[in-house]
Amino acid sequence: MSLINLHSVAHWPQQRGPWLILATSATILVLIALWFQHVQGLVPCVQCIYQRTAMIAIALFGWIGVLAPHYLTVRLVAMLGWLASAGAGFYSAHHHIYLQTKANPLFTSCSPFPDFPQWAPLHEWFPNLFGAGGLCTDIDWSFLGLSMPGWLRIIFAVYFIIALFVLATRLVRLQRL
């Protein structure tokens, strides 16, 4: 008997429960980020906003999966969106750690404004959610020796690995049919 029933994992995308867990966990993480910003007074930097945007995207794609997991198109959009958002979030968190630890602070700076597309200036539409003002090189919070982007890099990696595992298991299972 295996630790994880691969047949069950292959069917996760067709069930609401796994999508609900994904959507809820990402939504909770966004709410925690907003609590850090608006209650604890930690001002997010541009990289923080990019990571927040990726987490919001994971939540949104999770909620899309919750809506209609029995439709192939919905599953594909939700699955690929989850995978891409987790990858983008991991990249941003990794780059943020580089800025905090390896880059020369005299020659490293980040823009005070996120680089959203002109057709969707989220930082202007929703400044309390997407507005930046902090410095990317500052470490204002840490837990167990990791800064916030350090924890987010782990979280995004877990989301990405789970997405790949579910997708690979599903593809292998479908090929056996």
Rank of each mutant, 00 (worst) to 15 (best):
L6R: 02
H7D: 15
S8C: 11
A10K: 06
A10C: 07
H11A: 05
H11T: 01
W12L: 06
P13G: 05
Q14M: 11
G17P: 00
G17K: 14
P18M: 12
P18G: 08
L20I: 06
L20P: 00
I21N: 10
L22H: 14
A23I: 02
A23S: 10
S25Y: 07
S25K: 02
S25R: 03
T27L: 13
I28N: 05
I28H: 01
L29A: 13
L29P: 09
V30Q: 08
V30Y: 12
V30M: 15
V30I: 07
V30W: 12
V30E: 05
L31W: 11
I32L: 13
I32S: 09
I32D: 06
I32V: 12
I32M: 08
W35D: 15
W35P: 13
Q37S: 13
Q37L: 08
H38S: 09
H38L: 09
V39S: 15
G41H: 10
L42Y: 15
V43Q: 07
V43C: 12
V43F: 08
V46L: 11
V46K: 15
C48K: 04
C48V: 14
I49S: 03
I49H: 06
Y50T: 04
Y50H: 12
R52C: 03
R52T: 11
A54N: 03
A54T: 10
I56N: 05
I56H: 10
A59G: 00
A59I: 01
L60H: 09
F61Y: 08
G65W: 05
V66Y: 12
L67W: 11
P69F: 07
H70P: 00
H70E: 04
Y71R: 06
Y71N: 00
T73Q: 14
V74F: 14
R75H: 02
A78W: 04
M79K: 09
M79L: 15
M79H: 11
M79E: 14
L80H: 01
A84L: 09
A84Q: 12
S85G: 11
A86M: 05
A88K: 09
A88C: 11
F90S: 09
F90A: 14
